[in-house]
């Protein structure tokens, strides 16, 4: 999948300088700070980061699903239209229509007092011109498509009658009802067991192929990224610190944070040795250090890192990093510390 920013094909979604700020009693907090990225047609982009890095807020900001006192600025270009500037009724047609979203917790995202059939048909009613009987037929097809056995007989069941994995399948069926071209998935498998996670991730990949959808997948799990994404963007303290093709980033990280994240995950072959941990904890968004936000935890940091914030810049086709010392980080390799 060619996914470099400078390839000839036009991106499906283009995000420029997206910022999301929340007004709090203690002053404004910028959860997403001038984030820019592209999603190519049919591509799976992984947004990776730890809690509080702004990855989920970024995803929600794309569709302006940010409650007051949060404000979104920047430009999100979708099929030549800017979602940030779009009027509310227009945006409602795009939301859940051309762009669908699935969430981490299927139990709280589904309405517990409506049957799953009704919840799928709701979306069909909003975004298609099918009549009642055609909607019901389509709902059965969708449940079948996402791998729910005996779909026709499950249509009148309520969410609590499904297991966690099956509920996530129902949520995907609802998302697919409108035939979306972009699926935004916020930690879709975090609440699931590993064998079920595996099934859901593979389902998302199959559906991507089948419907030529683009997918933005928010996750904290590097294993999930390695197994599903074409390209990844690593977020730290509200900003993208590194992005590029997954294979390249895993082989040669250029940002110390990416390197630290990869080293923090145990791999086979070095059992019971010390892991390459990152000292300290992620900063509070209300107190982001000056200069590079990662500098207090970074072993490569120098005076310039404490003073100037590095900009995200391309250093090779399709690879971007925001680090003053990225060549040194790359040269240090990914080997796990002894």
């Amino acid at each position: 999948m060619s996914a470099a920013l400078d390839t000839g094909s036009a991106p499906a979604l283009s995000v420029r300088d997206l910022s999301t700020t929340f007004q709090t009693p203690r002053g404004p907090v910028t959860a997403v700070d001038a984030v820019s990225f592209d999603v190519m047609p049919g591509e799976v982009l992984g947004l990776v980061g730890e809690s509080g890095s702004g990855k989920s807020v970024t995803l929600r900001s794309l569709m302006r699903l940010v409650h007051a006192p949060g404000t979104v600025s920047g430009a999100v270009s979708w099929k030549g239209r800017d979602l940030v500037a779009m009027s509310a009724p227009e945006l409602r047609k795009v939301r859940g229509g051309e762009i669908a979203m699935i969430f981490q917790e299927p139990t709280s995202a589904l309405n517990p007092v409506l049957t799953v059939g009704l919840q799928i048909e709701e979306n069909l009613k909003a975004h298609t011109s099918l009549d009642r009987s055609a909607r019901r037929k389509r709902a059965i097809e969708l449940l079948d498509l996402v791998g729910i056995p005996a779909a026709a007989s499950r249509l009148d069941d309520y969410p609590h009658q499904f297991s966690g994995g099956m509920r996530q399948r129902v949520m995907i069926a609802i998302a697919l009802a409108s035939d979306p071209k972009l699926l935004l998935a916020d930690e879709p498998t975090t609440a699931l067991d590993v064998t079920i996670q595996d099934q859901i991730l593979k389902l998302i990949l199959d559906l991507r192929d089948r419907f030529a959808m683009s997918v933005v997948l928010v996750t904290h799990d590097l294993g999930v990224v390695a197994a599903t994404c074409d390209r990844m963007a690593v977020m730290y303290a509200g900003r993208i610190v590194e992005s590029g093709p997954v294979v390249d980033l895993f082989r040669e990280p250029h940002h110390a944070y990416t390197r630290g994240l990869l080293g923090s995950v145990p791999r086979g072959g070095a059992e019971r040795t010390q892991l390459l941990s990152i000292e300290g904890t992620p900063p509070s968004l209300a107190a982001i250090p000056p200069g590079c936000a990662f500098n207090p935890r970074c072993s490569f940091a120098t005076e310039v890192c404490r003073r100037d914030r590095p900009a995200l810049a391309a250093y090779a086709p399709g690879r971007f990093v925001a680090c003053h010392h990225h060549t040194e980080v790359a040269a240090a390799g990914t080997a796990v510390a002894a």
Binding site: E50, H220, L261, T281
Partner: peptide
């Protein structure tokens, strides 16, 4: 978080 997990695992070892 992953980066903090590694610290605690190292300590336990």
């Amino acid at each position: 978080d992953v980066s903090v997990q590694a610290q605690v695992v190292n300590l336990l070892l």
